[in-house]
Amino acid sequence: MTITITNLQPVIALIAGVLILIMPRLLNYIVAAYLILVGLIGLGLFRGLA
């Protein structure tokens, strides 16, 4: 499976969800990192990687 920009957001969400289940104390950091990454993807800053 090739990971492209279109399916990168669900992969990030899945990883964040698993990390929250494993380490709930990191919830604030995981949510902050998720929001930053999704925002950067939404702005198209990772367009050159695909």
Rank of each mutant, 00 (worst) to 15 (best):
L45P: 00
V11M: 10
Y29P: 00
A50V: 15
M1I: 04
M23W: 09
L21T: 03
V38G: 01
V18S: 02
I30D: 01
M1N: 03
G48V: 12
L27F: 10
L27V: 13
G44P: 13
L45E: 13
R47T: 14
Y34C: 12
L45M: 14
A50K: 14
G44C: 14
I36H: 00
I5V: 09
T4Y: 08
A33L: 09
T4L: 12
L27R: 10
L49M: 13
P10H: 11
Q9Y: 02
M23P: 00
L35K: 11
Y34D: 02
L49D: 08
I15N: 02
A13K: 15
V31S: 12
L35P: 01
G39N: 12
A33H: 01
L37K: 02
I12Y: 05
V38E: 07
V11C: 07
L27D: 03
I15S: 07
A32R: 03
I41E: 05
I12P: 00
M1L: 09
V11I: 08
V31T: 14
N28M: 06
G44I: 15
L37P: 00
T2V: 12
A32H: 05
G48N: 10
L14I: 05
M23C: 03
Y29G: 01
L19C: 10
I41Q: 09
R47I: 14
L43F: 15
I3V: 15
L14C: 08
G42L: 11
G48E: 11
V18T: 05
P10N: 03
A16W: 02
A16F: 10
T4F: 07
A32Q: 08
R25W: 07
P24I: 02
L14N: 02
V38P: 00
I41P: 00
F46S: 07
R47S: 15
L19R: 10
L21D: 07
L40T: 04
L49T: 05
M1T: 06
L35R: 04
L21E: 05
L49Y: 13
L43K: 14
L26F: 07
G39Q: 06
T2I: 14
A16D: 07
A32S: 09
M23S: 11
L19P: 00
L37V: 12
G44T: 12
G17P: 03
L49Q: 13
T4A: 12
N7S: 04
I41H: 05
L27Y: 04
V11L: 14
M23V: 01
R47H: 14
L35G: 04
L45D: 04
